[in-house]
Amino acid sequence: MILELKQINKSFDRPVLKDVDLEVQQGQIISILGKSGSGKSTLLNIIAGFETANSGSLHINEEVIFDKKKNTEPQDRNIGFVFQNYALFPHLDVKANLLFGVKNRKNKTLVKKLLEMVGLEGYEKKYPHELSGGEQQRISIARVLATDPDIILLDEPFSSVDTLLKAQIEEDLLKLIKKSRKTAIFVTHDAKEAMAISDKIAFIYNGEIIQYDTPQNIYYHPKSKVTASFFGIANFIDEQCYRLDQIHLDRQEGMYKAQLEHAVFRGEYYELHISVTVDQRQYPFIVFDQNGLHTEQEFYISLDEK
C-alpha cells in the first residue's frame, strides 16, 4: 500500500475533517470528490504536509510520515503537488522551473525528455506568462515528474480550463499520468470528471468520507441519497436507486404504470417528470425520452437491476 490515512481529524473554527481513513494502492488514480467546503482541499494539504492534522496518522510506503510524535516536512515527503493555478515560478524560465526540484543537475537530457513527454519541445527559454493555461499546466506536471515523486497530488487541475478544451486536457493529463505509472490523487468537485479519470472515488461530505469505491459501484450502488444525487439524476423506489440508463419507457407494456406530470424540452431529448405507481404507492421519477412519449398522458416503465 503506498498511502494510508488513519483517523485523520482536523478543525479550524469548526471540524473540517472527521476520522478520515483512506488507502491507496501503488499506481492507482484516486479522486477525492465533494462540494466546496467539504474538506477535500484540506485533506490534500494534510497529505502534502502544508497543513497539520489535529490527530490521526499518515503512512507512505508503510513508513510513518505523520502521527502524534512525528511530522515530516513537505520537502521530505517525496510527494508532488500540482496546484490549481499551477504555481510556476514567474521569475524563472521553463527550464529553470523544471529543474527547480532536481538534485542531480548533470542529467542534460532530462529537460528535453520532460518537454517531449508533455509535448512542448523547444519551450526551455519561455517564461510562464508567455504560456497558455493548458501549457502552464503541462509544465507544472512535468516539473513534478522531474523529481520522481512517490505520489502526485492534483488540486482541481481542470477548474481554470476552458470548458471546450477540458475534455482534451483531461485526456492528455490522464495519458501522462498513466504513462508515468505514478500514483495520483485528484481533488475535484465535478462527479463526471471524477468518474472519467479515477480507479476509485472517495466521496467526501461534511468532512467525512461517506463512500470509497469504484466509479461504477458508487454510481449504481450509492450508499446514501446524498451520494446518489451528487453523481447525477437518481430515482428512488424506497432505498433502491435507479439511474437513467436503468429505466426503459414503453407505450404499451412494462413493469409499472407511469403518469406524466410535465415535460421539459432539452434539445436532444425531452426531460419527463413522471409519477410511477408501485404496489399502489406513487414515486416521483425523472426520465429522458427520445421517442415522443411527451405527448402521452400514461405509459409504462421497466427497470434493470445492476
Partner: peptide, 8 residues
C-alpha cells in the same frame, strides 16, 4: 508550497 514540495 510548490518549492517545498519540490524538496527545498
Amino acid at each position: 508550497r510548490a518549492s517545498r514540495s519540490l524538496g527545498h
